[in-house]
Every structure is written in C-alpha cells, then in structure tokens.
Design a binder for these strands. Structure first.
Lengths: 238, 238
DNA sequence: CTTACCCGAGAGCGGTGCTCTCCCAATCAG
DNA sequence: CTGATTGGGAGAGCACCGCTCTCGGGTAAG
C-alpha cells in the first residue's frame, strides 16, 4: 500500500516525504501570492510556470485546482483562527468586553492583512465550489472563540436568553448546542452570537468589498463603533 | 459615420435597428438565465451556442464579455431601482418610517428574486472588472431613494446631525452634499444613511451568500428586526 | 439598380483545466 | 551492491474559453 508507505515516510521524516512537503508548501506559497495579485481566478498553469515546472506536474500534489484552493482555504481558516485565539488568550478571562473587542479586532486586522484570502473565506461563494468536509473544523475556530465568551457571559448571568432580538430570531441551533464547543450556551444566546458575528463580518465585508469606497474614510472608527454597539447587544457591557 | 447612421435608424425605428435591438435583448435574456444557472463566470460562447449562432457573431453586439456583463449590471441596477422607487412611491410621503421599511423590503424582495444579478451588483467584486462610468447613475438610484427619506426627515427636524454614531464616523461626503440628489442633507446625516444602507445590505449579503445557511431559519424576522433597529438609528421612529 | 454595410460563418491564436503516456532517477528490498 | 519499485517531471493532446480576423451573402439605403 502506498498510503502506509507514505505514512511511514512522514513518520520517520523521510527525505522524499520532506521534499514533497516542501514542494507542496512552495506551490501554496506561489498560489497565495498570485491570488493576492491577480484575484480569485487562480491559474494552475501560472503556478506551475512560476515554479518552473510543467502544468501536469502540479497534479502530482493536488488532485485539481479546487483541491489546491481548498488547501489554501484551510490554511487561511487556521491562520485566522490562530490569530483570533491568540489575541483572545492575551486578555484576562474575566474581562468579557475586552475579550470580545480584542477578538473582533484581531479578525479585522487579519482580514486587512490578507484581503484575498479573506475574500476566499467570506466573499461571494464560487458557484461550482462546494466546501469539503475538512474545512468546517478550521472554519468554526473563530466562532468557537466567540462562543466561549458567550458561555462565560451566560455563566455569570450576563445575557438573558430572551429579549427583543432573541425573540425576533428563531435559529435552529439545537444541534449546535449539543456539540462540545457550543455546550452550555442556550440556543437563544447562540442566535444572538450569530447575529453579532454577522454584524462584524458585514462591516468587514463592506470595508473590503464595498462599492462606496472613498465615501467613508475612517473605517477604524466605524468598526469600533460597530463593535461596541454589538457588545451592548450581547450584554457584554461590563 | 456608422454611429450617426445607427442613431438615425433608431430614431426612425428602422427595421434593421429593431432587429438589432431584439437580438441584443435575446442575448441578454439568455445571458441572464445562464448567469442564474451556472454562476457569474458567464461564457460568451455558451450564450452564442444557445442562441444558435457562432461565437464571433456575439461580438457584433457586445464589444467583449465584460461589456455584456456591464449591460446586465446596468439593467439589474435599473430594475432594482425601479422596484424600490415604485414601492417607496406607494406610501404616504409623511410616513417616514413606512417609507424606509417599504424601501428596504422591496430591495430584499428583488434580491431574493434575482440572487445571481444581486450578486453581480453587491457581491465580491470581480478582480479584473472595473465598473464603467455609465453604471454609477443606475447604481445610485436606490441610494437616492433613501436620501430623499433622510432629507424629508431632516426638514421636519428628525435626525439630529450630531450624535454618537455621526461623531464616530467621519465620512467625506462633502462633494455628495453638493450634488442635486443629495442636496439638503447634512453630511453627518448622510453618513448615518450610508451606515444604515450598509446594515441592510450586510444582512442581505449574509442571507444570500452566508456560509452558515441552515443555522438561521427565519430570515424574515431577522431582516425585520434589523430594519427597525436601523430605523431607530436614523431617527425615523415615527 | 447599384452601392454600402450589417452580420453570420469559419478559421485561428493563445490561454485554461485536466488526462494520458513515457521515462528517468531516487529509493527500498534482498 | 543490485535489481525492483515507485515518485514525479516532460510532453502531447483534448475540450473549453475570450477574442480577432477574413470572407461572403443577404438586405437596406440612395
């Protein structure tokens, strides 16, 4: 079996496996660069060209162009998730408001630093492309950070599970409440968390992809205002 | 000059001009359908194929694929603008809140009915594509409707031009205030209007393009809540 | 009726994603 | 150390794409 062999090689850090991993990293690096320069219609041939290799060689490493994109997406989710998690960890656990603010600011900073990859994650979905199953775990990392804040808020009696907003939105979050990362948060609070999340990403999407760029100059102030408004919505005022 | 000839023909409604207009309409109709079925990477050859014509023939009517897309975009803007304007006209002028609600609901209804075209207008911008000048007039039609509501609100002393939000956002809306459609609205109020607009479109974008589809089931209630919150923000509470 | 021209057909160019075969060289087993 | 195995690059090729060019027929204008 070639799979077992490959596992054995990577276990022992075989030369061939290392070279393969390096090639894959190099291809992703080039693809990431081209994505930032020439937009989301990534050309596999162009990647091969820049790497000094014929186009068919790329298929030794990625099944298809979509698989290459998927790899980039997973990396991006993980990178964003790591940034967000690190930022949130750097704040005292008891300061819920600060945890919220820092989390969202980290997400925005990452998005502004990697606009192309952010577009891949949160832009208009590519019609032919369906996100494979192995993207949903990395994709939920930022959401889980927010959920943890919400859970702590609930535990200290913060957000009451019923208010105007929660009553207006019926979210089918039963199965989510059952999963480990989301346990301890009532569905109504989860619903409010999702709304908060969409507010933040709505603001970010507008800043990055908005058509009215130029009319608004101080996005920093706008984003900060948005954050605080939503924080009040979540009952994180203190 | 062929341009003068074409103008003369269209003036007199010449047979040739009429046939040409019908062909253009048919091509746009087909393109619109394919856009809805196969996503935004529209194939000019596929349009030609469906019309039973060789691909080069399309270039008699549209300079390039981008020009065809631009024509679709302008039509879509005008269609959306017409829907919004008509809805807003059907409400008594003095009922500012209702005018606001009806306007936004019309925009949402149009977006849900034409998701592909909505994506063309407000989705992630295509990297290579720069919106030509003749799109900005149609594109501003919905914004002008909102601006008119704001102006009426200002005239009856509704939204005070300074508050937390307007103070937090510095919008460079001086030149806008000078243009006819935006006259009579202080820049600070315009800034709030833009924020309101982005809130509405943020909610719509999430409903149409969101990755978490399935978690939220009652988008109607959500959107309505969003509308009323933002209306309060605009001082349209009555 | 003659002239001008609109416009479809077709070939062609360079690009794309992807498949297939060939074949060399690095690796591993004995 | 030798021979079998296999990873992976090269290259040709297929179908598609946007776009350009030329050619020629039918039609409208004068």
């Amino acid at each position: 079996m070639c799979d077992t062999l490959r596992v054995a090689e990577s276990r022992t850090g075989g030369i061939r496996a290392r070279a393969r991993a390096e090639t894959i990293d190099e291809m992703k690096r080039i693809a990431r660069r081209q994505l930032g320069e020439h937009g989301p219609d990534l050309s596999l041939r162009a990647v091969a060209r820049e790497l000094g290799v014929v186009s068919s060689a790329v298929y030794r490493y990625f099944e298809s162009r979509d698989h290459l994109l998927t790899a980039l997406i997973i990396d991006a989710y993980n990178d964003l998730g790591e940034c967000v998690e690190r930022a949130e960890r750097s704040v005292p656990r008891r300061d819920l408001l600060q945890r919220w603010l820092v989390t969202c600011r980290a997400a925005r900073a990452w998005a502004l630093a990697h606009p192309a990859e952010y577009g891949l994650l949160y832009g208009t979905p590519v019609p032919g492309y369906a996100a494979p199953a192995d993207t949903i775990a990395p994709a939920s990392r930022p959401v889980l950070v927010l959920t943890a804040i919400l859970r702590d808020a609930v535990e200290r009696g913060g957000p009451t599970p019923t208010d105007r907003l929660a009553a207006a939105v019926r979210a089918d979050l039963g199965r989510l409440s059952a999963e480990p990362g989301y346990a301890g948060v009532p569905p109504a609070v989860l619903a409010r968390g999702m709304i908060a999340w969409t507010e933040v990403f709505g603001a970010l999407n507008f800043e990055l992809f908005g058509r009215l760029t130029g009319a608004i100059t101080d996005y920093d102030a706008w984003f900060e205002h948005q954050l605080k408004t939503v924080a009040g919505l979540l009952g994180l005022s203190r």
